[in-house]
Design a protein around this nucleic acid. Structure first.
Lengths: 206, 206
DNA sequence: TGCTTTATCAACAATCCGTTGATAATCTGA
DNA sequence: TCAGATTATCAACGGATTGTTGATAAAGCA
């Protein structure tokens, strides 16, 4: 965050207006139908000004959203505190709460960017953030691969996708639950599985 | 499947060539950069012929992929056989195996359509198929909402997204495991959770 | 065979793109 | 404050793609 370059306030203003216009237009007509002309018209800027800062609408989208991704990663950087075997769903992990808090704070933008199924790369980037988060959590809670039910890499992918799916569901439903509640729910189902009565068939040989 | 209309073989041939051209071009340059001109050129057809059958490239994509979705749903329609509480991961549910078998049979196309992050709606449709599948499975295994760890709707979304994520992971890695193995892994982690040693903290009051 | 449907072809106006060069406005730093 | 640098504006361009048209050729059907 914040390199030492002095930034011209005109640049900040212009980028900001273009970003806002883009988000608004994505919501109106979907990302693919958005044109550079429409963006600059809504932002009340000249089209040439757009090309002074971005190569195309994809570039604008990427620059606009990367800041959010960085901010999200930063917010989730609180260290994992695992209580050796027991995990109280009532006090979910702080990073977990931060995940939903952060997204909830920008829910308007996240909703647009994640509901839009044709959104390039944003979903992928968020999946990466979640994968790293889950990989860390799994390392803390279970470093031993032999005690995992499925290959670690597969499990990471499994839960990263699951989390993202629930996040999108949460956003599409206008965030009906608090960040803390969502974090608690996800922790519960992740650790305990979907059913309260769990039948484990463990091979006696292994 | 198969309405009673007689189909002109020219139409079948034309649509087939356009579909093949589209898939090839998506792989080459991504869906967004594909133009109708390029499609018809690769298919060696006149551009006007394209508009005789489809309104635009999105329409072509939808018509092309809907058949696959229907076929997938059909293949997964085998009834659930739950053995009341115990689930042997070695013999996973038949629908589950069919899911991976079907996708594996068209892996080339699924890989292109799911790896491409800007693919309109295909991911959503597959998520819907998976959600229905999971909803059915959950109803069989646990009809009682009170015995679920989290709200049913949330759980469905959770596991549908998780499955899709693992499927995409599987495809991106060139299907390194068999359909049956994948089905078994997903059943295991879904029912048991990620860790073999599971600590359940159940409120004594509830 | 004759009729219908489909495919081809060239051409069209319209839109958007990315860039250019000249000019005006704004900001920075000494 | 003011001069130089940066940024924004404007009009205009060639090029690409789009969606449509009307006329013609080819292929399928019964």
């Amino acid at each position: 965050m914040s390199k030492k370059e002095k930034v011209d306030p005109r640049v900040v203003r212009t980028k900001r207006m273009l970003t806002d216009a883009l988000i608004a237009l994505i919501e109106e007509q979907g990302f693919e139908k958005v044109t550079v002309q429409a963006i600059t018209k809504k932002a009340m800027l000249n089209r040439a000004t757009f090309y002074l800062h971005f190569t195309d609408k994809y570039d604008l989208l990427e620059q606009s959203t990367d800041d959010m991704i960085v901010e999200l990663k930063e917010a989730m950087k609180t260290s994992f505190i695992a209580s050796k075997g027991t995990y109280a769903a009532e006090t979910p992990n702080e990073s977990f709460i931060q995940l939903f808090t952060q997204i909830g704070a920008y829910d308007y933008i996240y909703r647009v960017l994640l509901s839009e199924s044709t959104m390039p790369h944003f979903r992928d980037k968020l999946t990466t953030v979640l994968s790293e988060f889950i990989a860390d959590g799994m390392t803390v809670m279970q470093p031993d691969d032999n005690l995992l039910t499925i290959p670690r890499e597969m499990a990471i992918r499994f839960y990263a996708s699951a989390f993202l799916g629930v996040i999108i569901w949460w956003l599409k439903n206008d965030c009906p639950y608090t960040a803390k509640y969502m974090a608690a729910q996800l922790m519960k189902v992740t650790i305990q599985g979907p059913y309260k009565q769990i039948v484990i068939e463990q091979k006696p040989s292994l």
